[in-house]
Design a protein around this nucleic acid. Structure first.
Lengths: 148, 148
DNA sequence: TAAAAATACTCCATAGGTATTTTAT
DNA sequence: ATAAAATACCTATGGAGTATTTTTA
């Protein structure tokens, strides 16, 4: 499984068509078929149901799609961070975190047991994307926030 | 940038050595060098400082590392989900979410403005990993939780 | 000089393309 | 009959290995 596969997979899922998906990033139709097939081979089951000229996600496909979308979002964020830094006008990851706001986290165990731990982001930018580690038990550990 | 690159990159960062990193997954040392170089070429700058027989992350490298770790965690989770489902004894993503607990989200705008939006997970499993979309402004939209 | 990364080279797996066939409307 | 996916086949990029050279503690 590589990012290349997942990009094509998500495109096909969105357009419900191998052919249309091939147009978008300038691939050949057979390339799209091949990439999806290799994913399905690795998976060990179909990701799409081929219904004549309509293509729909199987249950497995839907399952993978959720992960694939997150992975690609993160990779785009990483690429953006790389691009920004190359131009020399970027923020370090820490600065970006600071810019996203402070993280508030209810860490008391009894609080976690009896009611939801409270976590909040102040001054969050629109479209923020938050990744929280080890929650709630290890919430006292390092918490990274990646802003998209 | 592909997952293959990132895996090697994270390994090198962890071991602070190209040679040791090559041993771990059974790569040749030159392969590790090549993968890192291609990442650096794509980035447009060094990810590691080569200090004789010690290798340390540059600022750019540290930046990328945070993203890479998240991406790889997600991809491992995706692979696990694929594997589980192939064996037919897996939970769908929705079931996994339900198992992770309910998400509570303070959605009122005035609440977001004046104090942290409150988000909590009840019955969270140890080592849970939470991904929250569009926060806080679009918190009313679909929220996916992927558990690792 | 000893240990680690870079380089040179080789090989081959596979990504990707073109052309064709199959399949289902 | 037509539109879309699968298949067959070909090419070439680049991933990965071996052997060697360079670099620096």
């Amino acid at each position: 499984m590589e990012l290349r596969n997942l990009k094509i997979f998500v495109t096909v899922a969105g357009l419900q068509s191998f052919t249309k998906a091939a147009d978008t990033p300038g691939y050949a139709q057979s390339t799209v078929t091949g990439q999806i097939q290799s994913l399905e081979e690795e998976w060990g089951g179909a990701l799409f149901e081929r219904l004549g000229r309509k293509v729909t996600l199987t249950r497995n496909g839907e399952n993978l799609l959720l992960y694939a979308e997150q992975i690609l979002k993160l990779s785009r964020a990483a690429e953006r961070a790389m691009r920004i830094n190359r131009k020399g006008r970027g923020l370090s990851c820490k600065r970006q975190v600071r810019k996203a706001g402070k993280l508030f986290c209810g860490q008391k165990p009894y609080f976690c047991k009896n009611r939801p731990s409270s976590i909040g982001l102040s001054q969050g930018a629109p479209g923020s994307f938050i990744v929280i580690h080890g929650f709630p038990e290890q919430a006292a550990g390092p918490v990274h926030i990646l802003v998209f």
